[in-house]
Design a protein around this nucleic acid. Structure first.
Lengths: 232, 232
DNA sequence: TTCGGCGCTTGATATTTGTCAAGAGATGAA
DNA sequence: TTCATCTCTTGACAAATATCAAGCGCCGAA
């Protein structure tokens, strides 16, 4: 892997605390690759040969069963995915595909496990990362089990609004069919759900969302940090 | 904490690799307590003061929002819960209550974090545990998003059957209202779902389940290790 | 420019799931 | 034992969600 990419990988919480020696050892076997959109990077069930780090672009984690499929998460720079499979040396539970042109670092899982075994700081960093991932999935689980689709959409919009800076108008950051899948519904239903939020002051023009009455939407959505705050 | 309980805690994967010194340090601040059934041990949103270890009995992890509530997992001996919150020093995302009379070890979270910082083996053990938990939630997420309630029930029965030894007849290990909540449906619907599995040879008498045609049920359920095998 | 494809929307309809109310059956306490 | 309580079940109904089919509108290719 070219040295020019070292700093951005090194800056990740996961790699910032480890010794130079171990970091270089990890990078020695790693390589960076550019992928076009819609490339399936990994498929669920395969052995976890590489830990992936998204440097730019974005990646969709999804899963299929019995002819159905669902989006489970989106990975954005700069972060890793399939860390748990790498650590456990177990098959991937999710497939991954690029959503756009993406630059991705591939680190051999074997190297990650070897260095994990000898570098306490690295092990601790992994713990922090995994704990974060775990809590995110729990939040998403609560979102799915405790809320109706309309409530999930409303809260998603509030989260997205905050991510986009907090203004009344903002853009969805991916296509609606994927949003529908993430929220656990069909594209048709997402359309209707947007209509269902109209009484609460949400207007939609293509990918542009405007929240006309913040308080009203929040009164309906009842956002909760234990579900919606993905930073803790 | 009385020394007599040390061995069973020590035997846990989480604690087996650490030094004696650090283990004793952890146990010094810990204590064992017996709880009657239906006691709420922790409430979501509270600061995570203690890492919990279930020695006997069982504990329900659940969550509430806007008047609704749902069971997310059941903790059985011998294992820990709320490890992620402890590590991140973040609020609990789930509440916990005893399902039956239970003996539980409480280890101050502060101590866990301190020792985590200095004991690489402990940190590595925590990684393994967290990775396992993470993958379990992902599986459960896939179960929820990719399957209908009937399919979830069918696969649950197959999993439970295996846990119970694999015989055609076995018992449910908790009451149906909780099972319904775990599976993401109402008790009424669970009743109907059991009826819906009758054509596939599933008969129910109270808490006793009999699978009369294994192949038929499996043909319908289509169990998948990437969803149903909680050991990997 | 025109055409075809694709994503999105809409309506009609079916299916699934939840809600409410009532009753059966089991369990535990007095 | 009897009563009270609780879970589970059932039926009728309502609400949510999915499916199917059609049409709209945008965008890129010819």
């Amino acid at each position: 892997m070219p040295k020019q990419h070292y700093p951005e990988v090194r800056a990740l919480g996961l790699f910032s605390g480890m010794t130079d020696e171990n970091f270089f050892a990890l990078m020695r076997g790693a390589y960076v690759q550019n992928f076009p959109p819609q490339i399936e990077l990994i498929s669920e069930g395969e052995p976890s040969d590489f830990l992936h780090v998204v440097l730019s672009g974005s990646v969709d984690l999804f899963s299929q069963w019995n002819g159905r499929d669902t989006s489970l998460a989106t990975v954005r720079p700069i972060s890793t995915f399939i860390l748990a499979a790498t650590i456990k040396n177990a098959p991937y539970l999710m497939s991954a595909r690029t959503l756009e042109k993406s630059r991705i670092v591939l680190i051999p899982s074997q190297d990650v496990r070897s260095i994990f075994d000898v570098d306490g700081n690295f092990a601790r960093a992994i713990v922090t990362e995994l704990a974060q991932c775990y809590r995110s999935v729990i939040k998403s689980q609560k979102d799915l089990k405790l809320r109706t689709s309309l409530e999930r959409l409303a809260n998603y919009l509030l989260r997205q609004q905050k991510r986009a800076g907090g203004g009344a108008a903002f853009d969805l950051d991916f296509e609606k069919r994927r949003l529908a899948s993430v929220l656990g519904m069909t594209p048709e239903n997402l359309s209707r759900a947007f209509k269902g939020l109209l009484p609460y002051g949400v207007s939609v023009e293509g990918t542009r969302i405007t929240i006309n009455d913040q308080a009203d939407l929040e009164r309906f959505a009842r956002p909760n940090p234990l579900i919606d705050d993905f930073s803790t």
